[in-house]
Amino acid sequence: MTHLKRLTAAIFCLLWTASTAVATPSVDDIVKRVEANLSGETAFMRLTMVVRTKRGKRTMKMESWAKGRDRSFIRITYPGKDSGITFLKIDNAMWQYVPRIEKTIKIPASMMLQSWMGSDFTNDDLVRESSISEDYHAALAGENETEYLLDLHPREEAPVVWGRIRMHVSKEYLLPARVSYYDEEGRLVRVLDYLEVKPFGERHYPTRWRMLPQSLDREGHLTEVIIEHAVFDAEIDEAYFTKRALKRFSQ
């Protein structure tokens, strides 16, 4: 008798989850697909980064090669004086090569939260670009016609400084539209907008990323990354992801 009861209960449960899964993808699913849509197997991009401060703006151009989320290589191409500076990221480590001083420097842990190239991104943002699905519990906080609203709470062990991340995900592309970072007290620290989604072959990708820091000491700051050109899932030479590449591909 009791066995039968349990069985029916189980079957009901199964049916219920199955039916909801058909209606909307599960929250974890959304997060995983967003992540996949943002990185892809491999990616080559040409980017322009514009850093605005109270005092003016500065433009940089660069090329980036990435394989998955763990390995990437960046070369600065503009302005001329910075041209040839390269960065290599493998897992959690980051190296930098500066042609002017002909030196490869491993960025020490103590510099990880310093600004990257004067932007509102930190070295850590580039390196740890932390895996949201691994580091956060996601919960659906709401949805409308076009967007899911996700609340991401860090898992207890996750080495991330944010107290909460709120992510607007476009239903059409399953790409983030706006990501808001909060501290533990619930104060908004920074907002990252993903704008102007364009098609690149099979894939859609946001081509304008805008980072808006909210803290008082960074008032008037804004960093925009504009993706001029991108090729996804093409073959990328493994040679880019070695320390030798830093100097070799500097030119």
Partner: peptide, 16 residues
């Protein structure tokens, strides 16, 4: 020795 830092205009600065 070398140094790597940030200029006033947030530009990249490095030299020997």
């Amino acid at each position: 020795l070398s140094f790597v830092g940030t200029g006033v205009d947030s530009s990249f600065a490095a030299d020997t």
